[in-house]
Nucleic acid binder design. Structure first.
Lengths: 188, 188
DNA sequence: TTGCGCCGAGAACGATCGTTCTCTAGCGTA
DNA sequence: TACGCTAGAGAACGATCGTTCTCGGCGCAA
């Protein structure tokens, strides 16, 4: 069910990512991943010594995709404020995707954060990295760390709200709230 | 491990709530719930015909606790704006609790939303109810539905950020952002 | 061609879990 | 006392899952 030309490791990660995200990690068996990736169980375990390592690899890949998505949306903006607001435009298109089911890190944290410290750390690092990204842009736009934290809060809230309600509007509300907060924090 | 004087049904819900929330729903076995509630397996299944019904009962109880917490925090405020800001004060004390592990509905949705429509609906209804509550206060404070959605977004984002990062500050950032949004939306 | 090593297919294993069944002790009533 | 009902303790069952093991075939070197 995944492009057969890629190397096995990439195929496994792509298949696992899709299944883990769509149906949940614990609800997805290693044998389903094997079947979807078109790979033998022996190779799967040769590549990833256990399910937890596969989960961590999937989260790492998802983190890369997130960073590329954010960076791609920011590419067309011409100042820091535009790059900040591009975050919410990116969220809007993401929320509109049929496969959208919330933030994979939040989902993984809720499912495994209590039993797998490594997964909890991966979620923490992903969110910290996003915070850091926003903070750099907020500073460049003339705001401070508090503004950055607030803009990140809006993005987080939009993701969970859009996932549970199944709508894209939270991205728009978050974007307009961000505009107000940026304007006030940077003194227009 | 729960107060033994309450009736069995209440004891089961309290024990299940604690275990489900702390360790995850799928990671908690019915036998652990039985042991923690000090109840026989037969009685457990007489009270709840299956695990899903128990989960739904736990979510219903958690929804009641949430509403009481929000209402309790709002009780000391003397206007709608104060009651809106009381939400974030409530969040701050909640985040400071050692047992805090994020919003139970978001966690349950991430874990079971894909496989249990009933659980997904429970999460949706809980969030919709909160939206409705915020909207009533926002209207009373002179704002509109968009302000309400934005204030709710801040609360949602604060919950997930505080849970993953393990800090209480998101409540403070959300509160100050809410103050700005309310001031701007209501024309000071 | 013959032997060898690698790899895929899938059976097998052990653990866990949701759910049901069995057995027995206790209790109220005739 | 004898009987029948209830409920608790926990064994049992069937399914699932992560992980490992076995077997058989294919390619490659001599």
């Amino acid at each position: 069910m995944v492009q057969q030309e890629a190397d096995p490791r990439t195929r496994v990660i792509a298949a696992a990512d899709e299944l883990f995200y769509r149906r949940g990690i614990q609800a997805t068996g290693m044998d389903e991943v094997r079947a979807a990736a078109g790979v033998s169980l022996k190779r799967l375990y040769a590549e990833f010594p256990g399910k937890e390592q596969l989960v961590l690899a999937v989260l790492a890949a998802r983190h890369e995709m997130w960073e590329q998505g954010i960076a791609g949306a920011a590419a067309h903006a011409h100042d820091a404020r535009g790059r900040l607001l591009a975050i919410y435009d990116f969220l809007e298109t993401w929320f509109g995707d049929d496969s959208f089911r919330g933030c994979g890190f939040i989902n993984a944290f809720g499912e495994l954060g209590a039993s797998s410290p490594a997964v909890a750390d991966a979620a923490r690092e992903h969110k910290a990295s996003f915070q850091h990204y926003v903070q750099g842009l907020a500073t460049e736009a003339g705001g401070d760390a508090e503004l950055a934290a607030q803009l990140a809060l809006l993005a987080e809230g939009a993701q969970t709200t859009a996932a549970i309600a199944g709508i894209v509007e939270p991205a728009l509300h978050a974007r307009r709230a961000a505009e107000v907060l940026i304007r006030v924090a940077t003194g227009r």
